[in-house]
Design a protein around this nucleic acid. Structure first.
Lengths: 324, 324
DNA sequence: TGAATCACTGTAAACGTTTACGTAAATAAA
DNA sequence: TTTATTTACGTAAACGTTTACAGTGATTCA
């Protein structure tokens, strides 16, 4: 079985490979007649160009790499959906890599991508990352990079993020307005800009309401969900005065639900929970979870240059809960 | 700025390109001394091989294409997680494509992949597909293909699926055992094997319990979630005798929750709902949703040849609900 | 000593495309 | 008609890697 490539088409049509190639890329200097013959034969033999040959020659792959912590998470699911959709519309391909918040994995993946496999990178940094030198390689090799959500502010590139500090301030304030006085903050990482921003908003809200900042109340995500639950249970047992939880990611909210259930603590009555989340079915949770939702924003056109910070709008307090 | 490729390394080391290539692929016939020199220089210059050149030459890309209806869905999220993990372990790359259950999209994507971009395809067929000729192209071009969950039984390849008929029989039986007599079945598609199998199990359970099969009670998913809710509301209003719903996918269960809420119908008391679902937080739903869970199975080794049907285990009735 | 083997390296072709350049015929301008 | 221009196509090189093959010393064996 002969392969279907340009050479094959050329033989079949008694033309040169170059002419066939030009005809298919509807270059200007090809006669309409042969162009028609070529496309007819191409569709007859179901010709599909070999992308590796083309990428090698053109130095572009029409492929973008997407590096995420995980995909089993409503927020990142939405992100992947959006990325794939836009990519497909532009005839781009999406290579997906998951770090599972593992630093070594992130480094290994980044290294893989600098060989020319992709034309650009979309990335949400792993929360376990402390050292970001591996990301500098992306700029050294001139690979356009956009950070989103969990951004790395060290590299001077485009980034897409929410107004984390502001939203966290509002979320914490919302708990305070509803009577909470001892509010735990469950954070992802303090080496990431996003983590620091959310903690900053939390602290600012406490300060403006004359509530002392208590270091013991700020806890960080563990490597596994199981450990998260244990950590939260421990915290709630050590500090029975806690009457509010501000979770900076959805999974920590769910772990809080589980911890409260295990301890027999009534959510809403005893402890109110608010979280950054994109869970569509938050209303059907028992009790409904108050969420801060990252709204999807569409870029009408690419940003001018690569050093712009675009932020998501966040819609606050979605949906209505039992206590607000 | 000179590019970092084999030629560059060869110049730097005063060796031929071939020797450098052999040293890096630790071929047998290279002296340990030069091999060491080469890898040292490669890591110094942060050399990464160009995958397109390599793929072109080797006729393999170490890349698999994954074609899914969507990713914003706990089941497919889990699937993507698993695929990416195994792929990364084997040094493979994952190209992700989403069909959004759109037939034309699926055809277009399939065509894209036959040009040699990928070494194999993992696919869950779009529910809107009626015609499967586009999939035959995959076999014509000898592209290894594995269908999962929403399988296409026309092509004689490996497929991974749940014991749909059996699980549906059990799920429907579970509703009947709990007193339901008028059970609606919300299905995805009847052109897909999976859809037919699930409906078959539903019908068999009715039959074995001497409940007549009622065509009006079998409804199919609509293009949008909003329309699903409207469809279910319509059904429930037309047929107030419905006391059970068997949803063949999670989103239809969630739409049922919404429909019941809109109509003021009490789930559990008035209507019991059971669904295929991988929603981890199903217990936290109000009321908890009874689910049939697709358990993840690991293939210890690839199947012998490509015409084996491997099935998932399904764990039934997870988690415990208020009514069972 | 000569032939045979071995370890290592270089030469060159190939993978399938794209594209600068050359060339021939056809057309336009003189 | 001759000359310039255009149109359409072919030739060949390039992209970066792999690999069959050949070549070169060095070592081994007879």
């Amino acid at each position: 079985m002969e392969p279907v490539n340009l050479k094959r088409l050329a033989q079949e049509l008694k033309l040169s490979v170059a002419t066939v190639s030009r005809a298919l890329n509807n270059s200007s200097s090809t006669s309409p007649a042969t162009k028609a013959r070529v496309v007819a034969m191409a569709s007859k033999l179901k010709y599909e160009p070999n992308p590796h040959a083309s990428s090698l020659r053109r130095h572009t792959s029409k492929t973008i790499g997407v590096i995420l912590p995980e995909v089993a998470n409503p927020f990142f699911s939405l992100v992947v959906n959006g990325i794939e959709e836009v990519a497909r519309d532009q005839n781009y391909h999406v290579l997906l890599y998951l770090t599972h918040d593992n630093y070594e994995r992130e480094v290994a993946i980044t290294r893989l991508l600098v060989g020319g496999r992709i034309d650009g990178v979309l990335m949400s940094v792993a929360s376990a990352s402390q050292d970001f030198t591996h990301l500098d390689l992306l700029r050294e090799r001139n690979i356009p990079t956009v950070f989103f959500d969990r951004v790395y502010d060290g590299l001077h590139t485009a980034q897409v993020t929410t107004d984390n500090c502001d939203s966290s301030y509002a979320a914490t304030g919302h708990l305070i307005d509803n009577g909470c006085r001892t509010i735990a903050h469950l954070a992802v990482s303090n080496s990431l800009y996003i983590g620091r921003a959310r903690t900053r908003g939390y602290a600012a809200a406490l300060h403006d309401n004359r509530i002392p900042f208590d270091d013991e109340l700020v806890r960080y995500a563990q490597p596994s969900q199981r450990q998260d639950v244990a950590m939260i249970q421990g915290l709630l047992q050590r500090r029975p005065d806690i009457d509010g939880i501000f979770a900076s990611v959805e999974s920590l909210a769910m772990s809080s639900y589980e911890a409260c259930q295990n301890l027999g603590l009534s959510i809403v009555t005893a402890i109110k929970i608010i979280a950054f989340s994109n869970l569509e079915i938050a209303t059907f949770l028992s009790p409904p979870l108050t969420t801060i939702t990252n709204q999807r924003t569409l870029w009408a056109k690419p940003p001018p240059g690569y050093c712009l910070t675009q932020s998501w709008k966040t819609r606050r307090f979605q949906p209505a809960t039992a206590w607000n």
